[in-house]
Nucleic acid binder design. Structure first.
Length: 954
DNA sequence: TCTCTGCTTAGAGGA
């Protein structure tokens, strides 16, 4: 077992050669002293491209990996044979060496498994993965029960709890809890029987046999670990083993297998875990050797466990009179270097395919399509997209424009996936300090306690340093003893981060807080010393799903308008919904009368959310079932709040407990509980509200709607929007493409234009712009109106236009310094940008805020905005009781007084300043006073920022 | 050196 007595990074001399491939020779066959052998020469630039091009000869089966290599791919070569020849060092990769393609791309073990079944199955899984199916739900419940049994829980209690936890899914499948419990019990019996047997053979004392009738067979803690998350830096792989027993992988399968041997793909899955367990074992063996003064020489392959176990629990439940064959649930198999290397080569094939976003045909492996249960789907997808596939094609291809669209977005989403993978690689590429500085980790935690919960899970507590990070309550994180890759590490859920609830007294009798308290829950106990963000591919998976559903399952008529083959149609609606704002009323009429879609362009402060709520009510009055969606939880909750204010409360909110705002929890659908009740609550709801990411999940995929109403649609990628709109016959998008665009990690521009923007540009007639704003004084809105809204944005009333800071109770204009008395002012404090901060400017901002405070403006009415998080932190220190945040995070809210800190001096370099929409957002948060603080010369280097300064000074 | 929210995780099975 790896222990915290071995600090520092992995000690295995892992990478011997690593860098981009320059050239790959054609494979050839040569005669050697051992007979005929294949070889292929690969030239790479070691030291990650910095070294002299070096040729490595790949022998035998490694030529399969050479086959998929292309120049430009990153290659790692471990433990190659080294030989001097004519003054040159030559490397060769035979049986003892390993080659890994694109090691930073973490291939999932389940993807390796799917690829082994059929490379095309691997591809199909990415496109279409949100189906609800009983065997899957049951399988999940059995796995959870298995984990509970390993943690020593009572079987009946575990079954009841886990079925309750899966309540909604079971209900949506139309099953009863009792029926599922019966099914699960059969599997649980098989697990119990096997565990009992294991205990008996392990403990050779006669006394154990006498006790065997009792329930107490709880596995000894040192023998077992359940649900072990493994990440491999060396092989570029990640996955989660069901259980590890004495260092050996155990995989639970709830299907049936009456063959003597385990299924090949099951063996491959367990072998992949064995490979990663070997890596961990080698690291700790080498560490021991170093401590003992020996050199570390064990390779991970040598250190890998030699046996894997597959537990086919359904075997115990089948009717023995009708089945022949081997019905024992547990099947062991031996793991040798051949199988381990096979896993690595398969993993390489996947990584190579991902490098240039290729699409597998099925010919890559020797699979037989006639036995495949994905055959129909495979042929249909191949036919619709006109792809080459071993199974062949059925059906008519979608139009070429749609195929191009699919290709373009598929590629862009996969680029996002690679960006997520780069985040994984940072787990080991960055030191703990670098990760902490990047806000991606909380380090130097001091473990203060652990408690085993009734569920068998563990609550782990630590004292934090109070450092900031992106980690928030409810997040799934990697909890570790200090090293998330080679140390003791577990996936954990953050339950609490914050000031310790209990305070104590110090020596002088003063009450002191005991620091920041961090509480997480995990399956296994560990010393909680560090938390890391655990990147998730969930969003990319759901975007792929949405793309697939929108293009391959929607009827052509519905897609026509998206591809410009037809103009959107409207029925004329004469009813008046809002009588004091023409544009708002027109927006509701448009949405109600839309036969395809309607677009509502809502600039800042124009009552966009109010209009949206009115629209939802009007649709409901017509008998429509409405989906209410937005990218962020905050926007969804705001929309519900607006509905509530209009007296409408027949809403079901789908989302996680931590995502949904406290005061909206009463609308939240409880996903655990009685299956029938859970499902009925969702199915009977007239209005269902959820984020677009949740719309892509299994629960929402089972629902259909008449209309989807999507708020903040300017912040959504096209596939993100489609996740909501494909669930409905028609849709209405509400947003503002002149405010911030979707957040995407990759540089690809495809995803950064919203569907809202594309449609409003191609179909201006299908949209209404709300042109009267209720937020800003006339002068404050002038710049935004001119620059971003063609001068069409105007104050809704004279009162809005003429508002002044001294309208606030107790605020006197005379108390303000003269340069701050205008509604818009500019201050040039003459500081210097250092990194992403400007301390002098921060001081000036603090002075401005202090001036407003002294004039009587309450702290709650002041907001401070800066482009960089570093400057936000700088300002936060000076202004503890004022809201300070980045532009991006301020979108959606407003304050009476807004102070903007631009940070930049001399030049305006940096991508943050390139998107002018960011200024629009920053300027339009202010109601009565706006103060711009920055370097006039730097701002003057850009035309738009220059006009901004001119306007502020005038 | 740029901004950053989603999501129960990942994996659950069928001839």
């Amino acid at each position: 077992m790896t222990d915290s007595v071995f600090p520092g990074p992995a000690l295995t001399q892992a990478v011997q050669l690593r860098g981009p491939v320059v050239e790959v020779s054609d494979p050839k066959t040569v005669n050697t002293q051992y007979g005929e052998s294949d070889l292929c020469e690969v030239t790479l630039r070691p030291d990650r491209g910095a070294g002299v091009p070096t040729t490595v000869t790949l022998w035998g089966k490694w030529t399969e990996t050479a086959d998929v290599l292309e120049p430009g791919m990153e290659l790692a070569v471990y433990d190659p044979d080294e030989r001097q020849y004519q003054g040159e060092t030559q490397y060769s990769v035979g049986s003892d060496a390993t080659v890994v393609v694109e090691p930073d791309f973490l291939v999932d073990v389940t993807d390796v498994r799917a690829w082994v079944q059929c490379p095309r199955m691997y591809y199909l899984r990415k496109l279409d993965g949100a189906d609800l199916a009983y065997p899957l739900v049951k399988g999940t419940v059995v796995h959870e029960v298995f984990g509970d049994l390993l943690r020593g829980r009572d079987v009946e209690a575990a079954i009841d709890d886990q079925i309750e936890a899966a309540g909604l899914d079971i209900g949506l499948l139309g099953r009863e809890a009792d029926e599922v419990a019966g099914d699960v019990r059969d599997h649980a019996k098989a697990i119990e029987g096997w565990l009992q047997q294991g205990t008996l053979t392990d403990e050779d004392s006669a006394a154990t046999a006498a006790d065997s009738s009792e329930r107490d067979f709880s596995p000894a803690e040192s023998d077992w670990r359940s649900e072990m998350t493994l990440i491999s830096e060396r092989y570029g792989m990640k996955g989660r083993a069901d259980a590890v027993r004495r260092g050996m992988p155990v995989e639970l399968k709830t299907g049936k297998n009456t063959k003597r041997e385990p299924r090949f793909q099951d063996k491959i899955q367990a072998t992949a875990y064995a490979l990663m367990l070997g890596e961990r074992a080698a690291n700790s063996l080498d560490a021991s050797a170093v401590m003992a003064g020996d050199g570390g020489t064990t390779t991970p392959i040598e250190a890998a466990p030699d046996t894997g176990t597959l537990l086919y629990t359904k075997n115990a439940a089948v009717d023995r009179s009708e089945e022949s064959g081997d019905l024992s649930p547990a099947k062991e198999f031996s793991i040798g270097s051949g199988l381990l290397n096979y896993v690595i080569r398969t993993r390489n094939a996947i990584a190579a395919m991902e490098h240039d976003t290729g699409v597998p045909t099925g010919y890559e492996a020797n699979t037989k399509c006639e036995y495949c249960f994905e055959q129909d789907t495979c042929m249909a997808v191949s036919g619709r997209l006109d792809q080459e596939s071993k199974a062949g094609q059925v059906g008519v291809a979608i139009p070429e424009a749609e195929r191009d669209y699919f290709e373009r977005f598929y590629t862009a989403i996969e680029a996002e996936r690679r960006a997520v993978h780069r985040e994984y690689a940072k787990l080991w590429e960055q030191t703990a300090e670098e990760r902490a500085a990047d806000d991606r980790a909380l380090v130097d935690l001091e473990p203060v306690g652990r408690t085993e919960l009734d569920s068998g899970r563990w609550e782990l507590r630590a004292r934090g340093t109070g450092a900031v990070s992106k980690i928030r309550e409810g997040d799934l994180v990697m909890a570790s003893d200090g090293d998330p890759v080679t140390g003791d590490a577990e996936l954990a859920r953050v339950e609490r981060i914050g000031e310790a609830r209990s305070a104590s007294e110090d020596a002088n009798g003063e009450t002191v807080s005991s620091g920041e308290e961090i509480v997480v829950t995990a399956d296994e106990p560990l010393d909680l010393r560090r938390l890391d963000i655990y990147p998730s591919e969930l969003t990319t998976d759901r975007l792929q799903n949405a793309l697939h559903d929108a293009l391959l399952t929607q009827p052509p008529e519905q897609k026509d308008v998206l591809f410009g083959r037809r103009d959107p149609e409207f029925e004329t609606v004469a009813e008046t919904f809002i009588d004091n704002n023409e544009a708002q009323n027109e927006a509701v009429q448009l949405a109600v009368g839309a036969e395809d879609f309607a677009l509502v362009h809502g600039p800042p402060g124009t009552g966009k959310t109010y209009t949206l709520a009115r629209m939802v009510r009007a649709l409901v009055d017509r008998g429509d079932r409405v989906l209410l969606s937005a990218f962020t939880n905050r926007a969804v909750d705001n929309a519900i709040e607006a509905l509530e204010e209009q007296g409408f409360t027949d809403i079901v909110r789908v989302g996680t407990e931590s995502g949904v705002r406290e005061d909206m929890q009463n609308y939240r659908l409880e996903q655990s509980g009685d299956p029938g009740e859970c499902a009925a609550t969702l199915q009977n709801a007239q209005v269902v509200a959820a984020t677009t990411a949740t719309c892509g999940g299994t629960a929402m995929q089972s629902q259909s709607f008449d209309v989807a109403v999507v708020d903040e649609a300017g912040q959504l990628t096209e596939p993100g929007t489609l996740a909501a709109t494909t669930l409905a016959d028609r849709f209405a998008l509400v947003g503002d493409h002149q405010q911030l665009p979707p957040v995407v990690q990759s540089e690809d521009a495809t995803l950064s234009t919203s569907l809202f923007q594309r449609l409003i540009e191609t179909h201006p007639d299908a949209g209404v712009m709300l042109d009267r704003q209720y937020r800003m004084a006339q002068h404050i809105q002038a710049f935004a109106s001119r620059e971003f809204y063609d001068g069409q944005l105007r104050p809704a009333t004279g009162e809005v236009a003429g508002q002044r800071i001294d309208d606030l109770p107790g605020v006197s204009m005379d108390a303000l310094p003269e340069h701050l008395r205008d509604r818009v002012s500019f201050v040039d404090p003459g500081g210097t940008q250092t990194g992403n901060t400007n301390p002098v400017e921060a001081d000036a901002v603090a002075e401005v805020v202090a001036a407003y405070r002294e004039a009587g403006v309450p702290a709650a009415d002041v907001g401070v905005i800066a482009p960089f998080r570093a400057q936000v932190a700088e300002l936060d220190r000076r202004l503890p009781d004022v809201a300070v945040d980045t532009v991006d995070r301020f979108q959606g809210s407003s304050k009476e007084v807004i102070v903007v800190s631009f940070v930049a001096t001399e030049t305006l370099e940096g991508p943050i300043f390139e998107d002018y929409r960011r200024i629009n957002v920053a300027m339009t948060r202010a109601k009565k006073a706006l103060v711009l603080v920055g370097d006039a010369d730097a701002l003057g280097t850009d035309e738009v920022y220059g006009r901004l300064v001119e306007w502020a000074e005038s």
